[in-house]
Design a protein around this nucleic acid. Structure first.
Lengths: 237, 237
DNA sequence: CGCCCGGTTGACAGATATCAAGCGTCGTGG
DNA sequence: CCACGACGCTTGATATCTGTCAACCGGGCG
């Protein structure tokens, strides 16, 4: 008896995923993508505020963001939240945990989001059979090393925010979306904690940038009106 | 005619390297280490201030620090140097370049130093034959992701310096050296640029910590006298 | 021996944090 | 459907930390 076609499963397969070109399948043949699909244990959906994993939790899965977005954060002794990064569709969560075998931060959904969960052991094992895949995994890890270098500690607040916005913008563009118009899924507080600033400072900076006609912002809806000027600010005038 | 034994080559082989347990050979069999040795193209020595590689330079080699130390830095548009990290014996330089195929910063020797150069392509190729090696390379990349997360942007200056000192301390300890007594190879300015502070601030903080009997510092010679207190400062009291 | 550079210390300035008040929107429940 | 409350955000006043500017010190090297 032939397996009945399951429309949902079909849609969820890597082969049919619109993010395939950004995500793990990059450069793989159809057959290889099929193998990859076979190890993707499950896909899950999370609501805003749900934890994908917790700081200290045993590491097993790498997660690929399918839709929505996440923040990675730690809570320090004083109870303050420190944001380590944001994750968007096509990006992978969990690489930092490979070494210590447990996650080093919390991953929290910023909105209704879905992910594909992949056993790292199985992914690695598959990589040993498919060098293209293995190489790509190194690429991803390497890329992550540079994304994390976004913030110049010596830079002024305005410069940090400009870099942050440009980073978000280019990540939207990568996905074929508008680099100039998007909705921030994180709060001012999240941005502040990510950039090492106070939420009030973020708020003031947005107001300033709006006044200068560099962008327009209404709640979380952003329109970048002068990318050139924003880039100048981001590189320290 | 048998190859004459070359004492220098013998000493330089991974198999006889005292850093083997920290470096790439971790967990490999003797035979595998031999294979590794065969792809290590050359070892070179650099003097203080020499560049191991330049920002933008085409990427080909991963470097393992054998002795001495390095700083990785960028120069921004304003001409200011931004320090991305420090590298000590047993640590690897160049992983961040895998993705873009060119180095993203300058690597500069802080003192007379020596490195082993390894073609990444060959290392990767060897990894496809030796899963233990491949897995270890992932471990290293993953570990690097967490080291880079050292600085909490929201933290006070004293906290940052404390974390920096503890990081240096634990890296000395890893190598079997004293975690409490060491010589800093970088200038106050380098530390400042790494932590996102002014050199004067570093200088004042060292004076303060010395006054509190938490450490004693003479030029670049450091003695950590109260690790417990230093840890408290590092975690925000 | 003297210069130079890295480091220290002091006085002051400025950027950003903190504290506080108020506003608008969204969601909830009556 | 409307009213209320909560929360996220904005804006203002003030405080504080760290940067900047400047002078000086001392060791190392030529």
């Amino acid at each position: 008896m032939a397996e009945p076609i399951n429309p949902k499963a079909f849609q969820l397969a890597c082969a049919n995923c619109s993010l395939a070109e950004l995500c793990i399948p990059v450069g793989l043949t159809d057959q290889e993508v099929q193998k990859l699909d076979s190890i993707i244990s499950k896909r899950k959906t999370l609501q805003r505020g749900d934890y994908l994993f917790h700081d200290g939790q045993h590491f097993e899965q790498i997660y690929a963001v399918r839709s929505g977005s996440f923040k990675a954060s730690n809570v320090n002794n004083a109870g303050d939240e420190r944001i380590c990064g944001f994750y968007f569709p096509g990006e992978l969560l969990g690489f930092h945990a490979i070494h210590k075998k447990h996650y080093l931060n919390n991953a929290i959904a910023l909105e209704t989001s879905s992910v594909c969960a992949i056993s790292f052991d199985q992914l690695f094992e598959l990589g040993t059979q498919i060098p293209t895949l293995q190489r790509h995994l190194f690429d991803i890890a390497s890329q992550k090393l540079s994304i994390d270098n976004l913030i110049d500690l010596n830079s002024a607040a305005e410069e940090r925010l400009a870099r942050f916005l440009l980073s978000i913008s280019s990540r939207y563009q990568r996905r074929g979306l508008s680099p100039a118009e998007f909705r921030l899924s994180m709060s001012r507080q999240d941005i502040a904690h990510y950039l090492g600033l106070a939420t009030e400072t973020i708020s003031r900076l947005f107001s300033d940038l709006q006044q200068q006609n560099i962008l327009s912002i209404d709640r979380r809806q952003v329109q970048l009106m002068d990318l050139r000027k924003l880039q100048l600010i981001a590189t320290g005038n």
